[in-house]
Simulated assay, not measured.
Amino acid sequence: MWTPRPALHAHVILYSPLHRCYARADPTLSRVWVDAPIPYLGECGFLLHFQDGCYHLESSTHCFLSHLDRLVSQPSTQTAFHMQVRPGGLVALSDGEGGMLYAQGPRLLLGLGSSPHRGEEWFILQHCPTWVSLRSRSRKFLSVIYDVEVYAASEHLTPMSLFQFESDNDNLTLQLRSANGCYLAQRRHRTVLANGHPLECDTFFRMHWNCGRIILQSPNRRFLGIAPNGLLMASVTIPGPNEEFGIRLANRPFLVLRGRYGYVGISPEHDLMQCNMDQPNCIHLLPCRQGIYHFQAQGGSFWSITSFGTFRPWGKFALNFCIELQGSNLLTVLAPNGFYMRSDRSGTLFADSEDITKECIWEF
């Protein structure tokens, strides 16, 4: 019997068209609810593992959804689900014995049941989107206030300080969608407001990078910066420190990297990190500075780099890795030795590239 296996990246979200919400893991109660209208939380992301013809859903806290409607610490036959597919990215998960996974009860608990109604067992499987926070030179978060105005005024991260990072992978243009569902757009008097629509030309900004900090250029070729009153504006023609923004991944406590030859991970046959794995390993992100992270392996040790530009996952000391987003769910990694991390045909992961090539682009 044929078993469907999506070509999608392993880091996914589950959207219920019937309830118009996303699945969200609740580590406190060890449950999964279908109650998130916008998937900006890390808890909305799941790793989809394929093993022995079945699928296992792993939460952002590395617990697995079980047939008992709870999150458990280890994968087993009780966390294995069979997948049915329909056109349009629709999937349904079952236990193979008549039970289907769907949202139940007034709180929409995701669990097994035998009587789904109106197609509530069908979910749209999507690649986990990228949500980021942006910080000004004064270390204030960019936030949408008064519905549409964008200010660098908040010292605390709120849902209105989060933006979905949507980028054209070919020409490095960027759209930022706020939690209110609208895009940042350049408006009259060079102000930038969160009231744009997806295809509106004023919502496309060109991005430039400087050591992990992002610089945004508006359609009128002026650069975004912060006015004295904290308002976000496109005002200057030559960018300076005031036009550089710290950027941090908001819904990614870890990375799952896939390159040209497979996933980045650990192989029992090699002592070096590999880049041709069929199943991924998580890289835990420990934020250090804006755009700078420490890479931690699942066992708690840190990534270390050899004199040959290869990596081992059992270092004792944290090293600085610089992440720069290159498109929607695409990034490059500048390693501690000053070279870009790249995949190699041999299967070994290297950091020896001075320029960004196709082997340096990672899907995450």
Rank of each mutant, 00 (worst) to 15 (best):
A7R: 10
V12W: 02
V12S: 07
Y15P: 02
Y15S: 00
C21N: 14
R24G: 02
A25Y: 03
T28C: 05
L29K: 14
V32S: 05
D35A: 01
A36T: 04
L41K: 10
F46D: 08
L48V: 08
H56Y: 08
R70M: 08
S73T: 15
S73V: 12
T79P: 09
M83W: 05
R86C: 11
P87A: 01
G88M: 05
L93C: 12
M100W: 13
Y102E: 04
Q104A: 12
R107L: 01
S136N: 08
S143P: 06
V144S: 03
D147N: 10
F163H: 04
S167A: 15
N169V: 11
T173F: 09
T173V: 10
L176R: 01
L184C: 01
L184E: 01
Q186C: 04
L199I: 05
C201H: 14
M207T: 14
H208S: 08
H208M: 04
W209P: 09
I214D: 07
I214M: 07
L216H: 06
P219F: 00
P219T: 05
I226L: 10
A227P: 00
P228S: 06
L231S: 14
F254M: 00
R258T: 04
G259D: 00
Y263A: 03
G265S: 06
E269S: 14
D271V: 12
P280E: 04
N281Y: 11
L286P: 01
Y293F: 06
F295A: 05
F302G: 01
S304K: 15
P313M: 08
W314F: 11
L319F: 00
L325Q: 05
G327D: 12
G338Y: 02
D352C: 10
T357I: 04
I361H: 06
F364L: 00
F364I: 01
